[in-house]
């Protein structure tokens, strides 16, 4: 009895033993072929980059695609390019560990690799992509607050068109984005930042190491354009960006924390209560100001 129970649990535990779990797999090698497959696949197609979220959703039957399209065959999507003007393009299949290992992503963009080093654990970061972290639209995605304060744009492509959206415009809520069924994320574009700009990231989690954020936040300080802003994750259905340019001179951390705590709409769940998340957001914002002043 025990062994047959154990065996049926074991069999059920794998992806392929459920009904309907019978999808096709394609790995196109050009962007055109990818777009065509996506056009044909329609609502039944799922995009696979790192797979670290997709396989969990497949296993949990949250999605039951007819076709899985692997983006990793398209060479141009794997590029992490630094352009002459200082802007950066992160291709759809660039992993968190590649962003962390890129020594040129420092100074103005330092919050991004720092946040990526907080995504899951090392082995997962070898697969997990920045584009996937955004596309999955989990409110606690660690790469999202830094990309928000850096004014990054998501490039969406179809067979015939391309459009670019800011992250707050792209992410509409919990696991909801404006990506159409025939669109894929080709890249994330991070604009050049003025000289002297710095960015910081902070995350609050239950245990150090492999854990999701209870609250996470990034701060950007741009002395040339006198811009100061904070983005907060995990505390609202979609990322919240708080513009604090009027505090640029005073750097009043208490006032900044107060405004950020007022801007979020946290929920209570298994990881933390809404009250606790609000308090921790205040703590994170004050600590980001400490980082800035240090």
């Amino acid at each position: 009895m025990v062994s047959s129970l154990a065996r049926s649990w074991y069999e059920a535990s794998f992806l392929s033993h459920g009904a309907n779990m019978n999808f096709a797999y394609e790995k196109p090698t050009t962007a055109q072929a990818l777009s065509r497959l996506l056009e044909q696949g329609g609502a039944g197609a799922s995009l696979l980059a790192g797979g670290t979220d997709l396989l969990v959703q497949l296993r949990g039957r949250l999605i039951e695609p007819k076709l899985v399209i692997d983006l990793k065959g398209v060479e141009e999507l794997s590029r992490l390019d630094h352009h002459d003007d200082g802007s950066v393009t992160i291709g759809a299949t660039v992993t968190a560990n590649r962003v962390i290992d890129d020594k040129r992503l420092s100074g103005a963009m330092a919050a991004l690799p720092h946040a990526c080093s907080h995504i899951a654990a090392f082995a997962i970061r070898n697969r997990a992509t920045i584009a996937g972290n955004i596309a999955n639209a989990s409110p606690c995605a660690d790469s999202v607050p830094p990309l928000c304060v850096l004014d990054a744009e998501v490039e969406l492509r179809t067979t015939t068109a391309t459009r670019r959206l800011s992250l707050p415009a792209f992410i509409r809520g919990v696991r909801a984005t404006v990506r159409a069924k025939n669109e894929y994320i080709a890249a994330i574009h991070v604009p050049a930042q003025p000289k002297g700009t710095r960015s910081f990231f902070r995350k609050h989690q239950r245990v150090r190491g492999h854990d999701l954020a209870l609250a996470n936040a990034a701060l950007l300080h741009d002395p040339e354009r006198k811009r100061l802003r904070v983005a907060i994750g995990s505390c609202s259905p979609a990322p919240v960006v708080v513009v604090l340019d009027d505090l640029f001179e005073s750097l009043d951390a208490q006032e900044a924390a107060r405004r950020c705590m007022a801007a979020i709409i946290p929920i209570s769940d298994v990881r933390a209560s809404a009250e606790y998340r609000t308090d921790m957001t205040g703590v994170l914002v004050r600590r980001l100001f400490d980082d800035l002043k240090a």
């Binding site: 797999y25 696979l48 790192g50 797979g51 670290t52 396989l55 969990v56 899985v68 899951a120 654990a121 090392f122 082995a123 997962i124 070898n126 697969r127 492999h210």
Partner: peptide
Amino acid sequence: GECGACSVVFNGELVNACLVL
């Protein structure tokens, strides 16, 4: 992808085998 018990080296990189097709 929570426990790491299926970690293997895939083309020289450590991965969780449960999260790769």
